[in-house]
Design a protein around this nucleic acid. Structure first.
Lengths: 358, 358
DNA sequence: CTGTTAGCGCCTTCAT
DNA sequence: ATGAAGGCGCTAACAG
């Protein structure tokens, strides 16, 4: 019995201790059937004894695979992104792949990730979240030597790529229709910048749906009821304050995300507008906090989008030459307590009431 | 001029195209000064031409380093954890290290991470977030062959390990003292399970501080004013509802996290208790949403804790034999609008008022 | 300064 | 069924 060396244990140590060739040890590790159960047992025992773990780096080099999945995600601290990442992480943890997250907060970073990460030396597969490719990215993506899955991202001329998508136009329409059906005519839309350098399309598409719904209902479009600003609660609050201080303010506001809806609700609180009596608010995403704040919102399957993204990627990795899939995830209206019938006279009515009551 | 091969470009291709030895190319890549600027220029040009990127896996194997930092983090979707991870990611992105996150949601996973991740074959350095080692983990950690930094985690008999810590006892005391100074005598504490299998210590320590503050103020301890449950908004809401329905309910509640404070606020809303008139609420962490909901809370430097963790780790990596550092991050009371003077008679006074006014 | 060579630890063919 | 040998792409030590 030789002593356990202090340097890292290698496959060679195991082979020597077990008195077999190192090819045999390798076969045992990789569950190669052509090993007698006797020697397999012996080798496994030695492995335990030495507390041996195969060096992942060496495996990768030898296999010519990275054994890692890369995820390119914008603003990974946003609740919706976090939820998608959770779905990815949970699903991937059971596989042999490592997960490495590339957080994108600038366009430069976006471009460098697109350029450098989607390479076989970096990852065996790539998931891109919410970053819809621009025209010039298409070629890059379509001839990538690594399988790619787009989650919550799309492009009209894209058919060769796996995608998990949602219909944000439809979602925006459903949200606006909900408000219209409650009798609202003055419906605001507050979102992050529609024409942004990241090419985020969701707020734009939701706006399109909102617009269509308003038009179909023969409601006059009022440009003052649309406001865009940097994403975040405080900016949304600022925009909502401004909008609600209009001479004739909206009676309902559709926010492009739940986070922004929280900002709208906060603005209403500061203006002492009651929700939903004076102002209806609807958000988007159905993040965790939405249900506790009784926020009416459009639910999209965030967690599942990540989950499905990984499923599709692993499937592609297992059988490389499948046809690319394009999976549409449903969007659903969740009515809670922040939306209600439009006020009779105008949005200020009950505010005046409550003020005079003081 | 030879054609660009379709298989991945290697250092050998570059060497051949440039008409130099492959050692020279390696030197150029690694900024080894002993290359004439002429050949350096030539090589760099060839690298650009071939769009060559060194294979990271091969580099790792050859260097005997993984060039990755591992982060072991519990429940990475929690806002406080996300914020810490943001600090880590931002700081690490400028280095040459990859980041790989191990999300821990079960004790089994915690143990397997502790066992398998803290190995030189897996990572060059490890950051452990909020998972305080148990007695039996100490030995494992102290003789780890990889530098480890604990962030928001600690152990009394731990001096050989880098740590970024906070004083949660002090924080709990400050929170309770704030309420006491407002005249509150019936102060509830709502937290996640103090004696949990993950050995999370923060809620326990904050409870200790809370308890000490109450005692020092000669306020009678009422066990009914302490409730624990699984972490999360809804459970906190449930516990708060129950506590606020006591015959003599508390006039103030200290929640062990902002998320739980939101649950308390939600409970108050449902019971039509006004904040802070009928009920004062104080949270912990100062996550983003806290400022918008005007939540009084204990601020701890979440982002910075990650940042400092990485700084310390990179420092240790650069100069391995430094003395371990133990850095205490400050905790600060942020008074907003959810805490106010204790009601005169009892917590129900204004509730009764508002009900009779209906 | 630069080309050559010997590994890094593992997997995989090729013999046996 | 198993041992031996070559190679994955790169770095670093050595020789010139």
């Amino acid at each position: 019995m030789e002593p356990v060396p202090s340097r890292p244990i290698t496959i060679r140590d195991v082979a020597r201790h077990a008195g077999v060739g190192l090819g045999t040890v390798s076969r045992v590790i990789n569950n190669n059937p052509s090993v007698s159960s006797a020697t397999r047992e012996l080798v496994n025992q030695t492995i335990d004894e030495l507390n041996y773990i195969p060096n992942p780096t060496a495996r990768r080099l030898s296999l010519g695979k990275t054994l890692t999945i890369a995820v390119i995600a914008p603003f990974f601290s946003r609740p919706s992104t976090v939820e998608r990442l959770r779905g990815i992480e949970h699903t991937l943890v059971e596989s042999d792949y490592d997960l490495i997250i590339y957080n994108v907060e600038t366009v430069e970073r976006r471009d460098s990730c697109l350029r450098d990460v989607i390479r076989p030396e970096r990852a065996d597969g790539v998931i891109i979240i919410s970053l819809s490719p621009r025209d010039e990215d298409i070629i890059l993506l379509e001839r990538a030597e690594v399988p790619v899955v787009l989650v919550d991202a799309n492009h009209p001329s894209l058919t060769a790529l796996n995608r998990i998508i949602v219909d944000d136009v439809e979602g925006g329409m459903m949200a606006a229709d909900h408000l219209i059906s409650l009798g609202h005519h003055r419906i605001g839309y507050i979102s992050d910048i529609l024409d942004n350098s990241f090419n985020f399309t969701s707020s734009r598409d939701r706006f399109r749906g909102y617009y269509q719904a308003i038009e179909s209902a023969n409601i006059e479009i009022n440009p003052a009821y649309f406001a865009q600003g940097v994403h975040g609660l405080s900016e949304a609050r600022r925009l909502a304050m401004k909008m609600l201080n209009l001479p004739i303010p909206p009676t309902a506001i559709f926010a492009a995300s739940d986070t922004q809806a929280l900002g709208v609700m906060e603005a209403a609180r500061r203006l002492e507008l009651r929700i939903p009596d004076d102002l209806s608010v609807i958000g988007y995403d159905d993040i965790e906090v939405a249900s506790y704040l009784e926020l009416t919102t459009m639910r999209q399957l965030l967690y599942e989008s990540g989950q499905r993204g990984v499923d599709v990627l692993l499937q592609t990795l297992a059988e490389p030459h499948q046809n690319p899939v394009c999976e549409l995830l449903p969007t659903e209206l969740v009515v809670r307590k922040t939306t209600g019938p439009a006020p009779m006279i105008n949005g200020l009515r009950s505010k005046i009431n409550s003020l005079s009551a003081h």
